[in-house]
Each structure stands twice: as structure tokens, then as C-alpha cells.
Computed example of a mutant assay.
Amino acid sequence: MNNIAEQLSLAYQNLNEKCQGLGLTQPVALIAVSKTKPAAQVLAAYQAGQRQFGENYPQELADKATELADCRDLHWHFIGPLQSNKTKLVAQHASWVHSIDRLKIAQRLNDQRPASLGRLKVLLQINISAELTKGGIAAKEMLALAAQVNNLPMLQLKGLMAIPAPGESEQAFAAMQQLSAQLQQHYPDATELSMGMSDDWPLALTYGATMIRLGTAIFGARQ
């Protein structure tokens, strides 16, 4: 098994060097995507200093959050597709949801969010490559959904997320940068742009990504 602490250190070194090379002054969040990896590996990354973790499956997120409940400053980002019958698990355990693409899901998360946890930070997922097999809304639907989500008292609209089709990263990232600017004209606090994974994150940074999602680079290949 790869030494997670070493891989994490290397990932941050690479991220910092790229940010310096681009002259970026705002911090970029590295989300360690731990889906299919055991809680022990999440704990190893946590002990090495990592605090932001991404999960794709509600039950897996809930199980790991429960097992690692003593890690008080560990923040879970739900980044996968979310069905209405699984929203409660996410509302109770996540700090962020990157994949909002329907008002129904947003409403359920709002209604099921424990008041003691404060507002759930959410991103709208844009299906930027118009793929039939991917979640997300069309770009033209962004402002309408944003207005609906912004009215939900237990949610906090923080920005956008996208997963480009293979081979279309640069075109997609450029389009997302423009959409982010458009969204911020209406919602100045919606500054987050979650895009870029282990194979294309440097390119995402050049187009304004504020969150990158790295799994393989930290935990190795998925089982």
C-alpha cells in the first residue's frame, strides 16, 4: 500500500508549486476522495494533516463519519449522485454537497439538516459536457436552480461543480469559469468552483478551480 502521508505531502507540494507558478493568491482546497477506501486509510490521511474528504456513496459516507466521529474537525464532502431516499444520511453527516442538480434533493437536504450542525454548504452540479450518463443541470438552468436553492434556510449556496467528459477538460473548464463569474454577479458569496481530478487538476487551476478532488494520487487505485 502506498504511504498515504507521503502521497499527501507530494500532492500538496505539487499543488503549492502550481499555484505559485500561476500567481494564485487565494487558497485552493484539496479534497481527498476516499470512496471505496477503508476508514483506516482516511484516518491515516487525517493524522497526516488532511481535513477535507470526499465520498460518492451516502451509506459509505455515513459509516465512515460514524466510525471517525472523534475526529471533530474532519469535513465530509458528498460529491456523487444523490437519490431522494438517501438524502438524510448526507444531511446528517456532510459539511458540503457538490452535486445538487434538482430542487427536490435540495429541499430534502434542507428539511433533514440538523439545526445543531448549521447550514449545509452546497454546490450546483453543471453537466458541462451534456453527457446523458452524468448528473447535473444544463448551464441555462443554473440561475433558476440557484434562486430556488438560495431560498432554503438550512442550505448555503457556495458555487458550482463539474466533471467534464474525457478529452474535453479544457473546453469544459473554460465554460465553467464563465458560469462561475455569472453566478457570482447574482450571489457574490458563491465563489467556489469544484473541478479537476487526479489527471487534470493542473489545467483546472488555470481556469479558476478553488477545489480539486484527488483520490488515486493520495490513496492509490481504487479496488
Results as ranks from 00 to 15, higher is better:
Met142Asp: 01
Leu89Asn: 09
Leu82Ile: 01
Gln223Met: 14
Pro114His: 05
Thr133Gly: 04
Ala217Val: 14
Leu103Ile: 05
Ser116Asp: 04
Gln177Glu: 13
Asp200His: 13
Thr36Leu: 08
Ile100Trp: 02
Met154Tyr: 06
Gly196Asp: 03
Arg119Ser: 05
Asn3Leu: 12
Gln13Arg: 15
Cys71Pro: 05
Ala190Ser: 01
Gln47Ile: 02
Ile4Ser: 06
Gln50Arg: 13
Asp200Val: 10
Ala11Trp: 13
Ala69Thr: 11
Gln92Asp: 15
Val28Asp: 09
Gln171Cys: 06
Gly23Trp: 06
Ala48Asp: 03
Leu117Pro: 00
Thr191Arg: 12
Phe53His: 11
Asn151Phe: 01
Ala147Val: 01
Gln171Trp: 06
Leu61Gly: 09
Gln41Trp: 08
Lys88Pro: 12
Thr191Asn: 08
Asn3Ala: 13
Gln182Ala: 10
Ile105Ser: 07
Asn127Gln: 07
Gly21Thr: 12
Ala221Glu: 14
Arg113Cys: 07
Ser194Leu: 01
Glu17Ile: 13
Leu214Pro: 15
Leu155Asn: 01
Glu192Tyr: 05
Pro164Thr: 02
Asp63Gly: 11
Val42Ala: 10
Pro153Lys: 00
Trp96Cys: 09
His98Val: 13
Leu123Ser: 03
Ala204Thr: 10
Ala174Ile: 11
Thr216Glu: 15
Gly220Gln: 12
Arg108Trp: 08
Leu143Phe: 01
Ser180Cys: 06
Met161Tyr: 04
Asn110Thr: 10
Glu131Asp: 07
Ser198Asp: 15
Gly167Phe: 00
Tyr187Thr: 00
Thr25Phe: 11
Leu179Ser: 05
His75Gly: 09
Ala106Thr: 01
Ala29Asp: 12
Gln185Val: 07
Ser116Gly: 06
Pro166Ala: 05
Leu74Cys: 07
Asp111Ala: 12
Ile137Gln: 02
Gln47Val: 02
Leu68Asn: 02
Leu61Pro: 09
Ala139Ile: 05
Gly118Ile: 00
Pro27Tyr: 00
Leu24Ser: 12
Asn2Ser: 11
Ser9Arg: 15
Ser169Gln: 12
Arg108Met: 06
Ala45Gly: 09
Lys86Ser: 04
Pro58Phe: 04
Tyr12Asp: 13
Arg119Ala: 03
Ala94Lys: 11
Gln83Leu: 04
Gln7Leu: 11
Gln185Ser: 08
Gln178Met: 11
Lys88Cys: 08
Phe53Ala: 10
Gly196Lys: 05
Leu123Glu: 02
Gly167Ser: 01
Leu132Ala: 13
Ala147Met: 03
Gly220Ala: 12
Ala94Leu: 11
Leu74Tyr: 06
Met1Asp: 11
Asn127Gly: 07
His186Ser: 06
Pro202Cys: 14
Leu179Ile: 08
Thr66Asp: 03
Ala45Ser: 04
Ala144Ser: 14
Lys64Thr: 06
Lys158Gln: 04
Gly167Ile: 00
Ala62Asp: 10
Gln47Tyr: 03
Cys71Ser: 08
Val122Asn: 08
Leu15Pro: 13
Tyr46Asn: 09
Thr66Val: 03
